[in-house]
């Protein structure tokens, strides 16, 4: 009996010391996240224009209205589309580049620096450049936009388009630019992950007579699954919440075809002055993101088992 008590006491002491490791993080987090979160949730139950002294309590009305808000759900679909392109196009590119730079290759250092330029550039520059590339206008019979001019020159006149004003291409253009701007992130995280794989594992695989594909399949991929998962989660979060790029490319949007959740939230907050509704959108959006990440979690644990 006495011994047991001692163990618990020791455990308690042990735990207390372990808690000290997470305490600073939890303290900052509580003050700067949990408290505002509580306030936001509270606001989402009110009708409020952001400034008026009277906030009207309306219960879950905002959430009910949100359920029927077609534009809101389509904005989620648009963000999903951008995310899908980012997950496939951007992450494949990032992984391929990280693998290439992990090899003994000329100009390795140069590439490692250069691939990180797009994420560093401000949205202002990216917006300016892509506006110039995708410009739809004509001056003196010649296309102004680089892309259109290029298509014109190589004889593909029928492909010349109003890239950002055409519902069929606007969102794809945004997704491609977003992927271009973002692949550098995946690249360095994956590269850092590749560096932590023990070289001896590759040696062992070579000794066993594995081809480079086999060692990739049996050594690299299994070792990289957790890092890939992090990159996937970060890509999903980054792409679902993209908006500065959209503002700099299509301003307030092309009808409702380029709306994403964050632009809808901003419109509700400062455009139509429905603060409570904007907060409800934020919470709804969070729930959707949590569900998506749970899905990934399940898929990845299945993959691990397989």
């Amino acid at each position: 009996m006495k011994i047991e008590l001692n163990i618990t006491k020791a455990n308690m002491f042990e735990w207390a010391r372990n808690y000290c490791f997470v305490l600073p993080a939890i303290a900052i987090f509580s003050v700067f996240y949990i408290y505002p979160f509580y306030e936001i949730f509270n606001l989402s139950l009110h009708e409020w224009n952001g400034i008026s002294p009277n906030r009207v309590y309306i219960g879950f009305e905002n959430f009910k209205e949100l359920m029927q808000d077609e534009v809101w759900w389509s904005s989620l679909v648009h963000a999903g589309y951008i995310t899908l392109i980012a997950l496939t196009f951007q992450n494949t590119l990032a992984f391929a580049l990280a693998l290439a730079c992990d090899r003994e290759i000329k100009l390795k250092k140069f590439y490692r620096v250069v691939f990180f330029i797009p994420p560093v550039l401000s949205e202002v520059v990216v917006g300016l450049i892509w506006q110039w590339i995708l410009h739809a206008g004509v001056q003196g019979g010649e296309q102004i936009g680089l892309l259109n001019r290029f298509l014109d020159k190589i004889g593909l006149h029928h492909m010349v388009n109003d890239w950002l004003s055409d519902p069929k291409t606007a969102l794809t253009c945004i997704a491609v630019v977003h992927s271009w701007k973002g692949f550098g992130w995946g690249f360095i995280i994956l590269l850092a992950g590749l560096q932590t794989i023990d070289k001896q594992l590759y040696e062992a695989a070579r000794v066993d007579g594995a081809t480079s594909w086999q060692s990739f399949r049996n050594v690299t991929v299994p070792m990289m699954v957790p890092v890939i998962l992090v990159v996937v989660i970060l890509t999903v979060l980054g792409s679902m919440q993209v908006f500065v790029l959209i503002l700099s490319m299509v301003n307030q949007g092309l009808v409702f075809h380029t709306e994403v959740p964050v632009t809808r939230i901003l419109v509700a907050m400062t455009g139509t002055n429905r603060f409570g509704y904007a907060c409800a959108m934020g919470i709804n959006f969070g729930v959707v993101l949590i569900m998506i990440s749970l899905l990934f979690k399940i898929i990845s644990s299945r993959m691990k088992q397989a």
């Binding site: 410009h135 206008g137 001056q139 004003s165 490319m249 301003n251 092309l254």
Partner: peptide, 22 residues
Amino acid sequence: FARGIVTKGNKYAEQDFALERA
């Protein structure tokens, strides 16, 4: 209406007019 007018920011519209594109 010039092409691309629906998504053009005023900054870019001003640039187009100043450069005599419209």
